[in-house]
Amino acid sequence: MIVVTCPVCGIKGDETDFHYGGQAHVRRPATTDPVNITDEEQRDYLFIRHNPKGLHFERWRCDRGCGKWFHAARDTVTLDFKAFYGITELPPVELQQQAKGPWADYFQSRAKAR
């Protein structure tokens, strides 16, 4: 059993009280530039997923509490949650720095964009 805490309403529960929403921070390219979107970008949006062994960032929904979506950082080997944060937020900076592989690339590109 994994114990999830909703950062919105503060309720605590196991995985049956929440709904898993897959990888976090996926951007739909058609939202910003629907005209010039390529097949590859659409493929990446729909199917390509970060699948790290270790630190992962994902979406959860507080099914039996407030019903809101939120973000979580979790280790996919130990299943320990590292942080819960809001749906519009990026993870805490120290977790961004710990991220590896495609996640590290993603957070670097976000930092550059700012």
Partner: peptide
Amino acid sequence: TDPYNNYSQRGSFT
């Protein structure tokens, strides 16, 4: 399956 990404090779009681 358990519904979340997992490399732990042990499943949940749920």
